[in-house]
Amino acid sequence: MHDLDSILAALATNTWPAEHHGRALAAAALSLAAYEGRVRDQGTPYIEHPLAVVAILRDELHISHPETLIFGLLHDALEVTPSSEPEIAIRLGCSFVAELRAMTPDHRLEGRSRQATDETVWRTKTRRLSSAQTESPELKAAYEVLLGERDRYRTSGMALT
C-alpha cells in the first residue's frame, strides 16, 4: 500500500532542492488519486508501474531532475484517468499537461475504443516526440524510455484496447 511518504521516497525528494518539494507533494497526491483502485493486466496495483518507471529513470539512467521524475510518475495518469486532467493542470500547470497529453494515446484521452486509424496517429505522435528538441536532455531520455516501454507493451500481445 502506497501513501504520500512512500511516493516521495521513491522520487528521492530528500535529495531535491527545497523549491521543488511543493510540486513533488502535489504530484504524489495526484498519482494516488489517478491510479487509485486501478489494476494492471498482470493484476498488480497500477501505481507500481509508474513507480517502476521512476526507479528506472532515477537508478538506471541516473536522472535526478525533479520535473522529469514527476513526469515519469504521472506519465500514465491521463491514460488511466482522463478526468484527472483539470486537477493536474491546476496543480502542475498546463504545459505539464501538454507533455502528458503528448504521451497519451488519443483514444484514451477521448475515452473511446481503439480504432484502426489510431495506430497511425500514435506513430506520428511518437515520431514527433522522439525528434523533438526539448530544453532538457533528461526529458528527452524519459521520452525514449516511456516510448520504448509502450512499444514493448504493444508488441507483447497485450495491446491497449
Rank of each mutant, 00 (worst) to 15 (best):
E135Q: 12
A52T: 13
Y143D: 13
T68Y: 03
A52W: 12
L74C: 02
S84G: 03
V53R: 10
R154S: 13
G43A: 07
E60F: 06
L160G: 08
H75Y: 05
S113G: 13
S136H: 10
I7H: 02
E99K: 15
A29P: 00
A141Y: 08
E135F: 07
P66M: 00
R58L: 08
V39N: 04
G22N: 00
H65F: 06
I63L: 13
F71S: 11
E135S: 10
W122R: 15
E138M: 12
A34Q: 01
L147W: 07
A159Q: 13
I7Q: 01
R38I: 05
Q133P: 04
L73Y: 02
P82F: 01
L109S: 08
A29T: 01
L139D: 05
D3A: 07
T44G: 05
H2W: 05
R38D: 02
L146I: 14
F96V: 10
A132G: 11
H75M: 06
D76G: 05
A29H: 01
Q42A: 15
P137N: 08
E60Y: 11
D41M: 06
S6L: 03
S136W: 08
A142M: 07
R123S: 12
T155L: 15
L61S: 03
T44S: 09
Q115P: 04
P45Q: 12
D151C: 06
E110F: 13
R40L: 03
S6V: 04
G37F: 02
L139H: 14
A34H: 01
Y143G: 08
R101Y: 04
N14R: 11
P50C: 02
R38K: 14
E79P: 01
P17F: 00
P66D: 00
P82S: 08
L57I: 02
L109N: 10
V54T: 04
M1P: 08
H49M: 01
G111Q: 15
E19Y: 03
R123T: 07
E87P: 09
A116E: 12
T104K: 09
P66K: 02
Y143N: 10
L57M: 14
S84M: 15
S64L: 05
H21P: 00
L129A: 15
E149T: 11
C94L: 13
I63H: 04
D118K: 08
I63G: 09
L147K: 06
L25S: 12
C94Y: 11
E79K: 09
A142C: 08
L92T: 06
T15L: 00
T134V: 09
R38C: 07
E48L: 08
R154A: 13
Q115M: 13
A33V: 06
T161S: 14
P86Y: 06
S64A: 12
E67Q: 10
E19F: 01
L8R: 14
L51H: 00
I7K: 03
I7W: 02
G157F: 13
T134K: 10
T104N: 09
T15A: 02
R154F: 10
D5S: 11
G157W: 07
Y153R: 13
L160Y: 10
E60P: 00
L73W: 03
L73F: 03
H62C: 08
E85A: 15
S131I: 04
L139Y: 12
P50Y: 00
P45M: 05
M103V: 05
